[in-house]
Simulated scan of single mutants.
Amino acid sequence: MLAPEPYGQVIERSITEVAKVHNLTPIVVDDIINYDLKGRVVIAYFPMVGEDNRLLKKTYRLSGILYYSYPGDAESAIEAINEGIVLSEDGIDKSSQSLIQRSVRRLLELKIANQSTGVAYWWNLKASVGVLTSRDPYEMIADEVANELDQFLKSDET
């Protein structure tokens, strides 16, 4: 999980809850590479955040990638992140596709049968709240990320 606080904590909690709904036991770790190919892996990489404060409304933004691998290919994701995921409106799609291709290639080379891999990405995912509302914009963003993980997990159940 890479996201500035308070995003990181809220996203972590949301994706952990989704895993539990799917009868999985979530284990949050700092060094994911130690868990390479040892079961499902979820990596949340959201290094870019922003906010706009206006008189009656606040808007919070988040950009990054959610990576899911059924066989647990952490190595491909970490290599892609270390080599530089392009986080721009034009580059994030290409980076996401490259990440999937890298993972599929590795899993084919290792002759791993279930190669289910998913990447969801957001460029300036926004949550806007009025100053008089009680909605938590961080929770709104985390819910969107968790919904994508939920879709990945549902697709593996079929």
Rank of each mutant, 00 (worst) to 15 (best):
E75I: 02
V28I: 14
A127D: 01
V145E: 05
V86A: 09
V29H: 11
Q115N: 05
L2I: 03
I11V: 13
A44L: 03
A74I: 02
H22F: 15
E83D: 14
D150Y: 11
V21P: 01
V119E: 09
Q101G: 06
G39C: 13
I112F: 03
G64W: 05
N82I: 01
H22E: 13
R105T: 07
L62F: 03
A120P: 00
Q101V: 00
S98D: 11
E17T: 09
A142P: 01
I100V: 15
L62N: 03
Q97E: 12
Q151V: 07
K94W: 09
R40Y: 13
S116T: 08
I11Y: 10
V145D: 06
E139K: 13
L107R: 11
I27N: 14
L56K: 08
G50S: 13
G118R: 10
Y45N: 05
V129W: 07
D31Y: 06
Y121P: 05
G84H: 09
A80Y: 06
S155W: 06
T133R: 12
S116M: 08
I85G: 05
K57Q: 12
K126G: 00
L132E: 07
N53Y: 14
F152H: 10
Q151H: 05
R106Y: 03
P137S: 01
W122P: 02
I81E: 13
S96T: 02
